[in-house]
Nucleic acid binder design. Sequence first.
DNA 1: ACCTGAACACCGTTCAAGT
DNA 2: ACCTGAACACCGTTCAAGT
Lengths: 198, 198
Amino acid sequence: MLSVPEPRPVERLSRDRIVDAALAIADRDGLEGLSMRRLASELGTGAMSLYNYVPDKKALLDALVERVVGTVDLPVGVAPRQICQIWAHSVRTTICRHRAVIPVMMTTDRSILRSLAVVLFGALRDAGVGAGDAQAVVEVLARFEAGSVMLDADAAQRHESRRRRQDATFDLGVTALLDGLALQLTPDRNPNGSRQPE
Amino acid sequence: MLSVPEPRPVERLSRDRIVDAALAIADRDGLEGLSMRRLASELGTGAMSLYNYVPDKKALLDALVERVVGTVDLPVGVAPRQICQIWAHSVRTTICRHRAVIPVMMTTDRSILRSLAVVLFGALRDAGVGAGDAQAVVEVLARFEAGSVMLDADAAQRHESRRRRQDATFDLGVTALLDGLALQLTPDRNPNGSRQPE
DNA sequence: ACCTGAACACCGTTCAAGT
DNA sequence: ACCTGAACACCGTTCAAGT
């Protein structure tokens, strides 16, 4: 009788719980269904309580993107071309798991794509690619990557056939891009630069 | 004394005038500065008057994109590769003139990029490229195009040097993409398909 | 110190009343 | 018929009052 257990707000609020709930709403109802008030009510509090953990809605959205993207880790000891391919595919797969956050990533939090690109850049440098070439590959590939997740965003689940064609187009684009870049970059100076595959 | 000329609402409202004013606001204050109420007050009316010409805010935004993109016309009688290059550059130049609408184009009105792609597809077919190849080129190039305008959206005017590097990256990407696609598509079947340039 | 309701300054849009 | 103000159902966030 002394300590009355409240019925709903089971756990204490925390930044993690807030981001989790926000992602759940975004996945379920899309980005336009995610408001501070709705998020709060789903957590059993008033809207203003959120501001003890998040300075801003913009900051919340950025945290959402960071949660989704997390870390994309790349294998070591493989050829530069494989690194690029794996990066391209894993970034796409990761992002498409939570399609709702794509517009956020593209508009308010462009930095995250930068930081993903930095990961690729580091891996390429470690694999022996020259700084200039690595930079160029990363910049170009990031553009194709961004456009692909953007344009493939809607029909990801519905229409298996459509999704398959998008995957094929993506593969073709990555291959073509890497082939074409191999022709352009340091044509014969760098011995272990990014070359054709076979 | 009979007909008193109102001071502000000089011209009658029209869909064109509304879209013009909306674009002006978007260019000046960005997309978040564009609200139906503000747009209306800038035109000297109440918000609800706009709904006689536009069913929706979404429809207004779509009209905005259409106004910006307008028609991208392509030259006839040039090689497929040149058609692609000209398309890529003119679309980018056109879109970057009104950067505020890029998010709209990418999210609410993805159809417009489709219709731009259709223009390219038609031009390629007319130049003798096979349907499959033309389709593949268009799909891949559209993805690179979308990602490029997205990622280059912010620093377009400020920092001449940054803009120049973005232009160079874009050129490199287009060249690499077309080179790489030439290697992939109909390697030796189609006599006048998309081949290497020189 | 931490928390949070009421209040403020906005939204897009419906709806009914004006001409 | 065309137009449009008031009103509704929302926003994100400030601010002052609560513990």
